[in-house]
């Protein structure tokens, strides 16, 4: 069964989600629940650090798409950092870099909120 884990931490006003494992149709609800909780709690400055993400399918990408407008309407954003090349390739194939801030490392992602 696919394994996926989220660890949450804060850097000043920014919530960092460290994500690990495989994000597919089986595990996407885990990320979905986390984003819903952050939106409800008004924590809408979010960095997803994908350094531990080994795999993503369109079901995983769909979670980012489903919540980004809600988050941006509250003056927040999701920045995505530290993706492995094989994972970035999937984001790139669907044109994500034109609509999302996808940066090399967490520092840059946090800086984008300043």
């Amino acid at each position: 069964m696919s394994k996926f884990e989220i660890r949450k931490r804060s850097r000043s006003e920014v919530t960092i989600l460290d994500i690990y494992g495989e994000l597919d149709a089986h595990t996407a609800p885990i990320l979905e629940k986390e984003l819903q909780q952050l939106i409800e709690s008004k924590f809408v400055h979010i960095v997803v650090n994908g350094s531990g993400l080994e795999y993503i399918s369109s079901a995983g990408l769909g979670v980012f798409m489903a919540y980004i407008e809600d988050i941006r309407s509250q003056d927040g954003d999701i920045k995505i950092s530290s993706l492995k090349p094989k994972v970035f390739n999937v984001f790139d194939l669907l044109g994500f870099p034109t609509l999302y801030d996808i940066v090399e490392n967490e520092e840059k992602a946090v800086d984008r909120f300043k």
Binding site: S58, Y67, L94, F96, T98, L99
Partner: peptide, 16 residues
């Protein structure tokens, strides 16, 4: 992509 975002849709990308 932009239409999908506006409509908060998340599927349809598998075939693409």
């Amino acid at each position: 992509m932009q239409d999908q975002l506006n409509q908060k849709k998340r599927s349809g990308y598998g075939i693409l």
